[in-house]
Structure formats: structure tokens, C-alpha cells
Design a protein around this nucleic acid. Structure first.
Length: 308
DNA sequence: CCTATCAATTAGATTACGTCA
DNA sequence: CCTGACGTAATCTAATTGATA
């Protein structure tokens, strides 16, 4: 999982955002900043952090198991620490490419994928992943504990299928990684790509489709969170600026009251920005306390975007 | 009508955390 | 104090459903 987001230094968490109604990115119609470094959403950080944590957890799990050496086609994924880039990560691909079904275990996916008819798929939506994991574990002969448990679960689910008790089985790390790589290239799939991916991953096209759908939703959610945090920072900055200006106004009024005649002189030159219609002072008054009146340059920061 | 997509939701799996013996 | 078992809340995510273009 890679999400590149550089928005400056992180700050304290904003817990209340958890309960804040999510804003649609379509609603974000304005953009304002004062050149201060905006921070990324801590909520996003939390989530991304947890994703990273999950990833690390996954890697930790993997590291305890002997690495599988497989061939990845047709993509060239980023090499991982524990996986030599020249080796492949997907055993079923190796089988698909070389032996074409020889030594294959029971695989219900093929039933639906060969004719590309999702409607002909088995009734259990989990059967595909189950068979995949079972196939994976048995043929590799040294699957992780998680894989082995998945095998057991798949057997159980196979047994329970007739009893209408379905079990949700997660995609394997490699399947997810492959889908993730694919998502980086294009976050939507045409039917041809969907079928190809499904075939490569030994999933049903429907599963690939759903995965992309959910992945898009997650991306959108994260972007919304980033946008939300960005708007919050904008709001804070504007509030600060507003307070400062109110204070300055008060001081000016007080000065005018105490020095009515003096203030009639044009000691301060006020200029109006034609674009934003804001007033900026460009010269000083005689009162040092108000001479801090500044001509601020309002820079509009780029709106933070997640990748891709 | 058919299809693809999306938002909202459900529900199973997993993780985090507190409690207690 | 440490540890493991246990229960539970929180979180993640595969999958479903209904609306819409």
C-alpha cells in the first residue's frame, strides 16, 4: 500500500474529525492559505499508519515463513525486501504458465471463468478465494499459518455451503498486492482487463470487480479525509487572521478616538486589491502599536492529493 | 431493457485492549 | 509483577443491495 502525501509536518490528532460528517470533495469550492505548512490529516495518518502497520504485520508473518519463489506476469511489481525481484510471487501463475492444470487442485473458479460467465459461478462468493487458498497452500507445501487456517476455513465453508452458512475469506497478501499494482495503473477496469486479472489471480471476475469498487471507495474516503483536514487548517488560519484584523481594527478605532485630528491626516495609505477586494496597508502610521499593519501576501497552496 | 458504476450497508475476519485468575 | 486466557469493542474489508446514468 503506497500513498504518497507530502503536506508538511504532522501535528496533533484531531479527534473530533472522527465524528465530523464527511465532506464531499465536490463541495470543496474554495482554496486559501497563508503560506504556512499544512499538515496531513492525522486521521488519514492513523489509517495509513494502520495500513502500514497491517502491512508490516503481514510482512512479519511472511518473514516467519520460508519465502515462496514465484514468477509474476505480466506486471513487474516493485521488488520487496524479502522477495528477490527476479523471482515471482504467485505460484498459481507459474502453474498456469507451465503445466496448464497439471497437478492442480480442485478449483471452482475455473468453472466460471472459462466461459467468462459470472452467472454460472458457484453460489458461494467465497468459494473462489477458498479454493485459491487451498490450492496455494497445498501445492506450495509450506503455507503460512494464515494460509493453513484459510484452508481449514475453506474446507469448512465447502462443507457448510449447502447449509447456506457462508464464510468470508480474505484475499491473500499476494492477490491484494497484485490488485494494488493493477489499481495503480488504472483504477477502473474494462471487461477484458477484469477477465485477465481474474484469470491471473484465480478469482472470479465479480470478485475483481468488487475489489476495484471497494478500492475506489477507500481512495475516495481517504481523499475526503485529507480534504477535510485541509479545510480545517484553512478555517483555523482564517480564524486567526480574522482575530488579528479585529484586534487591529479595535486599535485603530481607539487611536482615532484619542487622536481625532491627527488621524485625519493621510498617514496610512490603504490600497484595495482589485481581485480579492481586500484592503492592505502599505505604509506605517505614527503609532508603533499599529504600525504592524502588514501587507500580507496570501498564497494559495496546492490542494493535497493522494496518489494515484 | 441492459450494463456499469457508485453509495450505503452488511457481515465475517482480524486486531487492540482491558480484565481476571 | 508477569503471563496467558477470555471477552468485547473497534477496525478492516469482501460482498450485497438499490439507485442512477
Amino acid at each position: 500500500m503506497e500513498l504518497a502525501l507530502s503536506l508538511g509536518d504532522a501535528s496533533k490528532p484531531f479527534k473530533f474529525l472522527d465524528k465530523t460528517p464527511k465532506l464531499s470533495s465536490n463541495d470543496l469550492g474554495f482554496c486559501m492559505g497563508l503560506g504556512s505548512g499544512f499538515t496531513a490529516s492525522t486521521r488519514s495518518h492513523d489509517k495509513l499508519g494502520s495500513l502500514e502497520k497491517n502491512h508490516q504485520e503481514d510482512e512479519r508473518r511472511i518473514s516467519s515463513d520460508p519465502p515462496l519463489q514465484l514468477v509474476l506476469l505480466p506486471f513487474s511489481p516493485v521488488p520487496r525486501r524479502h522477495q528477490p525481484p527476479s523471482k515471482t510471487r504467485f505460484p498459481w501463475l507459474a502453474d498456469n504458465c507451465s503445466t496448464e492444470g497439471s497437478g492442480r487442485g480442485f478449483d471452482v473458479n475455473r468453472l466460471s471463468m472459462d466461459d467468462a460467465d459470472e452467472g454460472a459461478a458457484l453460489s458461494s462468493p467465497n468459494s473462489a478465494a477458498s479454493s485459491f487458498q487451498m490450492d496455494f497452500g497445498i501445492r506450495s507445501g509450506r503455507g503460512s499459518k494464515r494460509d493453513l487456517e484459510a484452508i481449514e476455513a475453506s474446507r469448512a465453508s465447502d462443507d457448510e455451503e449447502n447449509g447456506l452458512t457462508r464464510k468470508k475469506l480474505r484475499l491473500t497478501k499476494d492477490q491484494s498486492a497484485f490488485l494494488e499494482e493493477s489499481f495503480k495503473e488504472h483504477n477502473t477496469l474494462n471487461p477484458k482487463q477484469k477477465l485477465a486479472l481474474a484469470k491471473q489471480l484465480n478469482l472470479r471476475p465479480r470478485q475483481v470487480e468488487v475489489w476495484f469498487q471497494n478500492r475506489r471507495a477507500r481512495t475516495k474516503l481517504k481523499q475526503t479525509e485529507v480534504d477535510c483536514e485541509y479545510l480545517k487548517r484553512c478555517c483555523e488560519t482564517l480564524t486567526k487572521e480574522n482575530r488579528r484584523l479585529q484586534k487591529e481594527l479595535q486599535e485603530l478605532r481607539a487611536l482615532k478616538t484619542s487622536q481625532p485630528f491627527y488621524m485625519q491626516l493621510p498617514a496610512t495609505t490603504l490600497t484595495m486589491c482589485p481581485s480579492c477586494e481586500r484592503v492592505a496597508t502599505t505604509s506605517t502610521t505614527t503609532n508603533p502599536s499599529t504600525s504592524s499593519t502588514t501587507s500580507k501576501t496570501l498564497s494559495l497552496p496546492a490542494k493535497p492529493r493522494l496518489f494515484p
